[in-house]
Simulated assay, not measured.
Amino acid sequence: MTQLSSKAGVGAPSSLGFQAKVMGSFLRDFDARTALRAIFCGVLVSAAAAEAIRFGVVERPLSLYANYEEVDPVVARVGDDVLRVSDAMAHAMYTGVDAETAADVPKLIATGTVEDAVDHLALAQMARDAGIADALEIRAAVALAERQILAEAFLDTIARDAASEDKIVARYEAEKATLERDSLMRLSKIVVETEDEAKALAARLPRANFATLAKQKSLHRQTGENGGAMEERQIAELGPELTEALATLPIGGVTEPVQTEEGWTLVKLESRRTLRLAPLSERREAIAKALREEAIAAAMDKSRDEFPTQVRSAEAIIEAAPDFPAGMIAAARIKN
Protein backbone atom coordinates (compact mmCIF):
# COMPACT_ATOMS: atom_id res chain seq x y z
CA MET A 1 0.00 0.00 0.00
CA THR A 2 1.53 3.31 -1.11
CA GLN A 3 0.73 6.51 0.79
CA LEU A 4 1.87 10.10 0.57
CA SER A 5 3.13 9.90 4.14
CA SER A 6 3.71 7.17 6.69
CA LYS A 7 0.54 5.36 7.58
CA ALA A 8 -1.46 7.44 10.06
CA GLY A 9 1.70 9.21 11.22
CA VAL A 10 4.42 8.16 13.62
CA GLY A 11 3.06 6.99 16.94
CA ALA A 12 -0.57 7.20 15.81
CA PRO A 13 -2.85 4.72 17.56
CA SER A 14 -4.01 1.73 15.53
CA SER A 15 -7.61 1.59 14.36
CA LEU A 16 -8.66 -0.99 16.94
CA GLY A 17 -12.34 -0.03 16.83
CA PHE A 18 -12.73 -0.82 13.15
CA GLN A 19 -10.60 -3.96 13.33
CA ALA A 20 -12.61 -5.20 16.32
CA LYS A 21 -15.86 -4.77 14.41
CA VAL A 22 -14.48 -6.72 11.46
CA MET A 23 -13.14 -9.54 13.65
CA GLY A 24 -16.39 -9.62 15.62
CA SER A 25 -18.32 -10.12 12.43
CA PHE A 26 -16.09 -13.04 11.40
CA LEU A 27 -16.22 -14.68 14.83
CA ARG A 28 -19.97 -14.25 15.19
CA ASP A 29 -21.03 -15.66 11.81
CA PHE A 30 -17.92 -17.47 10.53
CA ASP A 31 -18.99 -16.13 7.16
CA ALA A 32 -16.48 -14.11 5.14
CA ARG A 33 -19.12 -13.16 2.62
CA THR A 34 -21.36 -11.63 5.30
CA ALA A 35 -18.44 -9.78 6.88
CA LEU A 36 -17.24 -8.32 3.59
CA ARG A 37 -20.79 -7.37 2.67
CA ALA A 38 -21.20 -5.43 5.93
CA ILE A 39 -17.84 -3.70 5.44
CA PHE A 40 -18.61 -2.83 1.85
CA CYS A 41 -22.04 -1.38 2.72
CA GLY A 42 -20.35 0.81 5.33
CA VAL A 43 -17.85 1.97 2.73
CA LEU A 44 -20.68 2.81 0.35
CA VAL A 45 -22.26 5.17 2.86
CA SER A 46 -18.91 6.83 3.61
CA ALA A 47 -18.10 7.23 -0.08
CA ALA A 48 -21.51 8.68 -0.88
CA ALA A 49 -21.17 11.14 1.99
CA ALA A 50 -17.73 12.13 0.71
CA GLU A 51 -19.15 12.80 -2.74
CA ALA A 52 -21.89 14.94 -1.21
CA ILE A 53 -19.20 17.05 0.49
CA ARG A 54 -17.01 17.13 -2.61
CA PHE A 55 -19.77 18.37 -4.90
CA GLY A 56 -21.09 20.95 -2.48
CA VAL A 57 -24.31 19.23 -1.39
CA VAL A 58 -22.98 19.27 2.18
CA GLU A 59 -21.27 22.41 3.42
CA ARG A 60 -17.55 22.26 4.17
CA PRO A 61 -16.12 24.35 7.05
CA LEU A 62 -14.41 27.43 5.67
CA SER A 63 -11.40 26.81 7.93
CA LEU A 64 -10.50 23.83 5.76
CA TYR A 65 -9.81 26.07 2.77
CA ALA A 66 -7.67 28.34 4.91
CA ASN A 67 -5.49 25.45 6.14
CA TYR A 68 -4.88 23.64 2.84
CA GLU A 69 -3.76 24.99 -0.51
CA GLU A 70 -5.85 22.64 -2.61
CA VAL A 71 -9.64 22.54 -2.51
CA ASP A 72 -9.67 18.82 -1.77
CA PRO A 73 -6.10 17.51 -1.43
CA VAL A 74 -5.12 13.86 -1.48
CA VAL A 75 -4.42 12.38 1.95
CA ALA A 76 -3.34 8.89 0.87
CA ARG A 77 -3.08 6.68 -2.19
CA VAL A 78 -4.49 3.18 -1.85
CA GLY A 79 -3.75 1.06 -4.89
CA ASP A 80 -5.46 2.73 -7.83
CA ASP A 81 -7.66 4.86 -5.57
CA VAL A 82 -6.96 8.05 -3.63
CA LEU A 83 -8.28 9.13 -0.27
CA ARG A 84 -9.00 12.85 -0.22
CA VAL A 85 -9.63 15.25 2.63
CA SER A 86 -13.38 15.11 1.96
CA ASP A 87 -13.23 11.29 2.12
CA ALA A 88 -11.45 11.38 5.47
CA MET A 89 -13.91 13.96 6.80
CA ALA A 90 -16.90 11.90 5.65
CA HIS A 91 -15.43 8.78 7.22
CA ALA A 92 -14.85 10.64 10.47
CA MET A 93 -18.42 11.95 10.59
CA TYR A 94 -19.78 8.50 9.73
CA THR A 95 -17.87 6.93 12.62
CA GLY A 96 -19.13 9.53 15.12
CA VAL A 97 -16.24 12.02 15.23
CA ASP A 98 -17.40 15.56 16.08
CA ALA A 99 -17.52 18.16 13.32
CA GLU A 100 -14.62 20.23 14.68
CA THR A 101 -12.25 17.25 14.74
CA ALA A 102 -13.50 16.05 11.35
CA ALA A 103 -12.40 19.38 9.83
CA ASP A 104 -8.87 19.04 11.26
CA VAL A 105 -6.81 16.67 9.09
CA PRO A 106 -3.79 16.49 11.48
CA LYS A 107 -6.16 15.34 14.21
CA LEU A 108 -7.72 12.78 11.88
CA ILE A 109 -4.27 11.39 11.16
CA ALA A 110 -3.17 11.47 14.81
CA THR A 111 -6.30 9.70 16.05
CA GLY A 112 -6.12 6.92 13.48
CA THR A 113 -9.24 8.00 11.61
CA VAL A 114 -7.34 8.27 8.32
CA GLU A 115 -5.93 4.79 8.90
CA ASP A 116 -9.49 3.52 9.36
CA ALA A 117 -10.52 5.21 6.11
CA VAL A 118 -7.52 3.71 4.28
CA ASP A 119 -8.47 0.24 5.55
CA HIS A 120 -12.04 0.78 4.34
CA LEU A 121 -10.82 1.87 0.92
CA ALA A 122 -8.51 -1.14 0.60
CA LEU A 123 -11.29 -3.51 1.62
CA ALA A 124 -13.61 -1.86 -0.88
CA GLN A 125 -11.05 -2.57 -3.62
CA MET A 126 -10.89 -6.19 -2.48
CA ALA A 127 -14.67 -6.38 -2.54
CA ARG A 128 -14.78 -5.07 -6.10
CA ASP A 129 -12.07 -7.53 -7.17
CA ALA A 130 -14.07 -10.34 -5.56
CA GLY A 131 -17.14 -9.46 -7.61
CA ILE A 132 -19.18 -8.27 -4.61
CA ALA A 133 -19.93 -4.96 -6.32
CA ASP A 134 -21.89 -6.87 -8.97
CA ALA A 135 -24.16 -8.61 -6.48
CA LEU A 136 -27.77 -7.51 -6.79
CA GLU A 137 -28.24 -6.66 -3.11
CA ILE A 138 -25.01 -4.62 -3.12
CA ARG A 139 -26.11 -2.63 -6.15
CA ALA A 140 -29.42 -2.07 -4.37
CA ALA A 141 -27.56 -0.89 -1.26
CA VAL A 142 -25.50 1.54 -3.36
CA ALA A 143 -28.64 2.94 -4.96
CA LEU A 144 -30.35 3.20 -1.56
CA ALA A 145 -27.38 5.02 -0.01
CA GLU A 146 -27.32 7.47 -2.91
CA ARG A 147 -31.06 8.11 -2.72
CA GLN A 148 -31.01 8.61 1.04
CA ILE A 149 -28.05 10.96 1.03
CA LEU A 150 -29.31 13.03 -1.90
CA ALA A 151 -32.88 13.21 -0.62
CA GLU A 152 -31.81 14.17 2.91
CA ALA A 153 -29.28 16.71 1.61
CA PHE A 154 -31.92 18.22 -0.67
CA LEU A 155 -34.48 18.48 2.12
CA ASP A 156 -31.85 19.90 4.49
CA THR A 157 -31.06 22.58 1.91
CA ILE A 158 -34.76 23.34 1.42
CA ALA A 159 -35.34 23.54 5.17
CA ARG A 160 -32.27 25.71 5.79
CA ASP A 161 -33.26 28.18 3.08
CA ALA A 162 -36.85 28.29 4.31
CA ALA A 163 -35.84 29.14 7.88
CA SER A 164 -33.43 31.98 7.11
CA GLU A 165 -33.39 34.91 9.52
CA ASP A 166 -35.10 37.20 7.00
CA LYS A 167 -37.95 34.73 6.52
CA ILE A 168 -38.33 34.17 10.26
CA VAL A 169 -38.59 37.94 10.85
CA ALA A 170 -41.05 38.31 7.95
CA ARG A 171 -43.30 35.55 9.35
CA TYR A 172 -43.13 37.10 12.82
CA GLU A 173 -44.16 40.51 11.46
CA ALA A 174 -47.04 38.89 9.59
CA GLU A 175 -48.22 37.18 12.78
CA LYS A 176 -47.93 40.45 14.64
CA ALA A 177 -49.96 42.31 12.01
CA THR A 178 -52.67 39.64 12.12
CA LEU A 179 -52.99 39.93 15.88
CA GLU A 180 -53.12 43.70 15.67
CA ARG A 181 -56.06 43.41 13.28
CA ASP A 182 -57.66 40.77 15.45
CA SER A 183 -58.79 41.13 19.03
CA LEU A 184 -60.41 39.11 21.77
CA MET A 185 -63.96 40.26 22.39
CA ARG A 186 -66.61 39.60 25.00
CA LEU A 187 -70.00 39.62 23.28
CA SER A 188 -73.68 39.14 23.98
CA LYS A 189 -76.34 38.23 21.43
CA ILE A 190 -80.06 37.95 20.83
CA VAL A 191 -81.29 35.57 18.14
CA VAL A 192 -84.81 35.83 16.72
CA GLU A 193 -86.63 34.28 13.76
CA THR A 194 -87.30 37.25 11.48
CA GLU A 195 -85.67 40.50 10.47
CA ASP A 196 -88.73 42.47 11.61
CA GLU A 197 -88.46 41.01 15.10
CA ALA A 198 -84.76 41.92 15.22
CA LYS A 199 -85.49 45.50 14.09
CA ALA A 200 -88.24 45.84 16.70
CA LEU A 201 -85.86 44.75 19.46
CA ALA A 202 -83.12 47.06 18.16
CA ALA A 203 -85.57 49.98 18.38
CA ARG A 204 -86.10 49.28 22.09
CA LEU A 205 -82.40 49.68 22.74
CA PRO A 206 -80.69 51.44 24.47
CA ARG A 207 -83.71 52.18 26.69
CA ALA A 208 -84.28 48.49 27.39
CA ASN A 209 -81.66 46.26 29.03
CA PHE A 210 -79.95 44.01 26.48
CA ALA A 211 -79.51 41.12 28.93
CA THR A 212 -83.18 41.25 29.92
CA LEU A 213 -84.33 41.20 26.29
CA ALA A 214 -82.00 38.25 25.58
CA LYS A 215 -83.54 36.25 28.44
CA GLN A 216 -87.04 37.07 27.23
CA LYS A 217 -86.74 36.88 23.45
CA SER A 218 -83.63 35.02 22.30
CA LEU A 219 -84.12 31.68 20.54
CA HIS A 220 -80.57 30.65 21.47
CA ARG A 221 -81.34 28.95 24.76
CA GLN A 222 -77.80 28.54 26.10
CA THR A 223 -76.83 32.22 25.80
CA GLY A 224 -80.36 33.48 26.35
CA GLU A 225 -80.44 32.03 29.87
CA ASN A 226 -77.22 33.98 30.59
CA GLY A 227 -78.54 37.30 29.32
CA GLY A 228 -77.10 36.66 25.86
CA ALA A 229 -73.51 36.36 27.14
CA MET A 230 -71.15 34.45 24.84
CA GLU A 231 -67.71 33.04 25.50
CA GLU A 232 -64.82 35.35 24.66
CA ARG A 233 -64.11 35.12 20.94
CA GLN A 234 -61.61 36.31 18.39
CA ILE A 235 -63.20 38.31 15.63
CA ALA A 236 -61.91 35.86 13.02
CA GLU A 237 -63.98 33.10 14.65
CA LEU A 238 -67.29 34.83 14.10
CA GLY A 239 -67.74 34.50 10.35
CA PRO A 240 -67.66 37.23 7.68
CA GLU A 241 -71.12 38.66 8.38
CA LEU A 242 -70.43 39.41 12.05
CA THR A 243 -66.78 40.34 11.42
CA GLU A 244 -67.85 43.19 9.18
CA ALA A 245 -70.58 44.35 11.59
CA LEU A 246 -68.20 44.39 14.59
CA ALA A 247 -65.16 45.93 12.84
CA THR A 248 -65.97 49.54 13.80
CA LEU A 249 -68.43 48.93 16.65
CA PRO A 250 -67.60 50.85 19.86
CA ILE A 251 -67.60 49.23 23.29
CA GLY A 252 -71.23 48.96 24.47
CA GLY A 253 -72.57 49.26 20.91
CA VAL A 254 -75.07 46.92 19.28
CA THR A 255 -74.98 45.81 15.66
CA GLU A 256 -77.77 46.22 13.16
CA PRO A 257 -79.73 42.98 12.62
CA VAL A 258 -77.44 40.43 10.93
CA GLN A 259 -78.64 37.21 9.32
CA THR A 260 -76.60 34.21 10.49
CA GLU A 261 -77.07 30.44 10.40
CA GLU A 262 -78.86 30.67 13.76
CA GLY A 263 -81.33 33.34 12.63
CA TRP A 264 -81.53 37.14 12.74
CA THR A 265 -79.01 38.29 15.33
CA LEU A 266 -78.23 41.39 17.37
CA VAL A 267 -74.75 41.42 18.89
CA LYS A 268 -73.53 43.71 21.67
CA LEU A 269 -69.82 44.38 22.14
CA GLU A 270 -69.20 44.22 25.89
CA SER A 271 -65.41 44.57 25.82
CA ARG A 272 -62.41 44.25 23.54
CA ARG A 273 -58.78 43.49 24.30
CA THR A 274 -55.87 43.39 21.92
CA LEU A 275 -53.88 40.17 21.67
CA ARG A 276 -50.15 40.49 22.23
CA LEU A 277 -47.56 38.37 20.46
CA ALA A 278 -44.62 36.94 22.41
CA PRO A 279 -41.23 38.54 21.62
CA LEU A 280 -39.36 37.31 18.55
CA SER A 281 -36.73 35.72 20.79
CA GLU A 282 -39.44 33.44 22.21
CA ARG A 283 -41.15 32.78 18.88
CA ARG A 284 -38.05 32.26 16.71
CA GLU A 285 -37.66 28.48 17.12
CA ALA A 286 -41.37 27.74 16.67
CA ILE A 287 -41.51 29.91 13.54
CA ALA A 288 -38.36 28.31 12.13
CA LYS A 289 -39.80 24.85 12.74
CA ALA A 290 -43.06 25.78 11.02
CA LEU A 291 -41.21 27.25 8.03
CA ARG A 292 -39.05 24.14 7.68
CA GLU A 293 -42.04 21.81 7.89
CA GLU A 294 -43.99 23.85 5.35
CA ALA A 295 -41.05 23.90 2.93
CA ILE A 296 -40.46 20.15 3.21
CA ALA A 297 -44.16 19.41 2.72
CA ALA A 298 -44.22 21.67 -0.34
CA ALA A 299 -41.12 19.95 -1.74
CA MET A 300 -42.69 16.53 -1.25
CA ASP A 301 -45.88 17.66 -3.01
CA LYS A 302 -43.85 19.12 -5.87
CA SER A 303 -41.85 15.90 -6.26
CA ARG A 304 -45.05 13.88 -6.55
CA ASP A 305 -46.42 16.29 -9.15
CA GLU A 306 -43.23 16.38 -11.22
CA PHE A 307 -42.54 12.64 -11.07
CA PRO A 308 -45.81 10.67 -11.39
CA THR A 309 -45.51 7.18 -9.95
CA GLN A 310 -46.97 3.91 -11.14
CA VAL A 311 -46.49 0.91 -8.86
CA ARG A 312 -46.89 -2.52 -10.42
CA SER A 313 -48.97 -5.10 -8.62
CA ALA A 314 -47.25 -7.96 -6.84
CA GLU A 315 -48.93 -10.38 -9.22
CA ALA A 316 -47.51 -8.59 -12.27
CA ILE A 317 -43.99 -8.57 -10.79
CA ILE A 318 -44.12 -12.29 -9.94
CA GLU A 319 -45.47 -13.10 -13.39
CA ALA A 320 -42.62 -11.18 -15.04
CA ALA A 321 -39.96 -13.00 -12.99
CA PRO A 322 -41.39 -16.23 -11.53
CA ASP A 323 -37.98 -17.48 -10.36
CA PHE A 324 -37.12 -14.26 -8.55
CA PRO A 325 -36.42 -15.26 -4.91
CA ALA A 326 -37.89 -13.41 -1.95
CA GLY A 327 -35.81 -11.51 0.59
CA MET A 328 -32.06 -10.93 0.16
CA ILE A 329 -31.05 -12.25 -3.25
CA ALA A 330 -28.13 -12.87 -5.56
CA ALA A 331 -25.49 -13.57 -2.89
CA ALA A 332 -22.07 -12.18 -3.75
CA ARG A 333 -19.57 -14.57 -5.29
CA ILE A 334 -16.24 -14.42 -3.45
CA LYS A 335 -13.26 -15.45 -5.54
CA ASN A 336 -10.92 -17.96 -3.92
Rank of each mutant, 00 (worst) to 15 (best):
S5I: 07
S5E: 10
S6I: 13
S6L: 11
K7A: 10
K7G: 11
A8I: 01
G9Y: 02
G11C: 03
S15P: 11
L16F: 06
F18I: 12
Q19H: 10
A20N: 14
K21A: 15
G24Y: 03
S25D: 12
S25W: 01
L27H: 03
L27D: 07
D29G: 11
R37E: 13
A38D: 09
I39S: 02
G42M: 04
L44T: 14
A47T: 11
A48N: 03
A48H: 04
E51T: 14
F55W: 04
V58G: 00
V58M: 06
Y68D: 12
E70Y: 00
V74W: 00
A76P: 07
V78N: 03
V82D: 05
V85E: 02
A92L: 08
D98K: 05
I109V: 14
G112W: 04
T113H: 06
D116T: 15
D116S: 15
A117H: 02
D119L: 13
L123N: 11
A127Y: 00
A127R: 01
A127E: 04
R128F: 01
D129N: 04
A135D: 06
E137S: 12
A141G: 01
A145W: 00
I149S: 11
A151T: 15
A153D: 03
T157K: 09
T157W: 02
A159M: 09
A163V: 12
E165K: 06
E165N: 09
V169L: 11
A170Q: 12
A170E: 12
Y172D: 06
A177I: 08
T178N: 08
R181C: 07
D182T: 13
D182N: 15
D182G: 06
S183K: 02
S183R: 15
R186G: 08
I190Q: 00
V191F: 01
V191A: 05
V191D: 05
V192G: 08
E195M: 07
D196I: 06
A203R: 13
T212P: 01
Q216R: 10
K217N: 03
H220I: 04
H220M: 01
Q222Y: 03
G224Q: 02
N226H: 11
G228V: 08
M230F: 03
M230E: 11
R233L: 10
G239Q: 06
T243I: 12
T248G: 06
T248W: 00
I251T: 15
G252S: 13
G253C: 09
V254L: 06
V258Q: 07
E262L: 15
L266A: 10
L269Y: 08
E270Q: 13
S271P: 06
T274F: 01
L275F: 03
L275E: 10
R276Q: 10
L277M: 07
P279F: 02
E285V: 09
E294M: 09
I296V: 15
A299N: 04
D305K: 12
P308I: 12
T309R: 06
R312E: 14
P322T: 08
D323L: 09
A326K: 07
A326I: 14
G327H: 05
I329S: 15
A331E: 09
A331P: 14
A331K: 05
A332T: 13
R333Q: 14
I334K: 00
I334M: 10
K335A: 14
K335F: 05
